[in-house]
Nucleic acid binder design. Structure first.
Lengths: 202, 202
DNA sequence: GGCCACAACTTGACGGCGTCAAGATCTCCG
DNA sequence: CGGAGATCTTGACGCCGTCAAGTTGTGGCC
């Protein structure tokens, strides 16, 4: 049997993804501090030292979770800017809303993605998972890049604003627990991006 | 002797501030993960359980450090916007530069200030330390608040942008280790705030 | 001035954590 | 069928936060 009855296998078989899944569950249930190698192992039904054979310590597990989390993050961003008005400004606002919504729905995953080993690791390490999300941002930002302007500037303006706003939102700056998006200052704050003008319609 | 030769006191006397200072040192030397109650106690020359009599666990120590760190943070912001051009836009840009500079100089303290127990705690708890820094922001933002507009919106726009930008900067998004401010995209990104206009000069 | 109550700190222990070394077990392939 | 190698277990170590109980110095009260 290579994958027999999925039961009583002494060599679990799909341990790595199972550990990542367990880690994500822990993250969603108890936040970033509830994530530990030993608890992931326990949830996956293996011994406490088993994860060491699949990840380079806790940092490695967090990075693997971050890569997985980026998929979900990307789907939030893409889904958001595919819904709503399809003009450049409409897509930009929807992207930002999707960013904040992801933070509200999955604060633990956001913390891992942008945590010590998350973002820093992805910036340097492969980062192809991050690229998906960043390409969505790039596509949405493109109409606002003036001819001859560095697109990195516009992308960073958007990213900085929505990232900072999301973190302040999650920290309870506008109410604790954070209010629904439409009851917070989201629209008014993001309106700062109205200063950006589509290059084709100045 | 009430405060005799400062030596061999079995009842340390100034343990609480000494622990906070030790914690800040640890933070500056090894980042947020290097901070522990036991190491603070060792640095202060007391037993491992002594901190428990002065702080409510590790979270309490972090909050105390955050309050202390906010003083330094405030001085960075105030000092920055007091130097440089004194027109509204000049002060705004200087404030942002001071924010980023603080992050570059003291990333560990920034992490504690805006960490789990830091910002969240200060938002709800007293928060008078935070208020100093926020009042600086408020004063700098004031000229850009249009009549009838909610000043919270303008303040949040500024705070979100510089906060998000600083975190991306520290994460190595523009080079690792982060480049000096003038070699990064700081000026161009912060130029988004040029969309704000002093109410007296529309 | 002497004693006592109280605050400050120590000692010791507990469980949880990440990590390493060594051993057991299963699978696959020759 | 048998061995090689990957996979997982067991056990141990040191560090961590936290609690309970004991010790020591201090200031106030009689």
């Amino acid at each position: 049997m290579t994958k027999g009855p999925l039961k009583s296998r002494h060599h679990h078989g799909d341990l790595k993804p199972a550990l990542i899944k367990a880690g994500i569950d822990l993250l969603e249930e108890g936040g970033i501090n509830a994530l530990s190698l030993r608890k992931c192992a326990a949830r996956a039904g293996v011994s406490h030292a088993a994860p060491a054979h699949h990840f380079d310590g806790l940092a490695g597990l967090k990075q693997a979770i971050a890569e997985e989390g980026f998929h979900l993050f990307s789907s939030y961003l893409q889904g958001a800017c595919d819904s709503g008005p399809q003009d450049p400004k409409g897509r930009l606002r929807s992207l930002c809303r999707g960013y904040l919504q992801f933070g509200l729905d999955h604060p633990g995953i956001l913390a891992v993605i942008f945590g010590d080993q998350g973002l820093a690791g992805l910036v340097h390490g492969g980062g192809k998972e991050k690229a998906d999300a960043y390409l969505t941002l790039r596509a949405v930002a493109a109409p606002f890049v003036a001819p001859g302007q560095d697109r990195l500037v516009v992308e960073t303006q958007i990213w900085s604003l929505i990232h900072g706003f999301t973190l302040l939102y999650l920290a309870g700056e506008f109410g604790s627990p954070p209010p629904p998006i439409d009851e917070g200052p989201f629209a008014q704050v993001i309106a700062l991006l109205d200063a950006l003008h589509p290059a084709s319609a100045p």
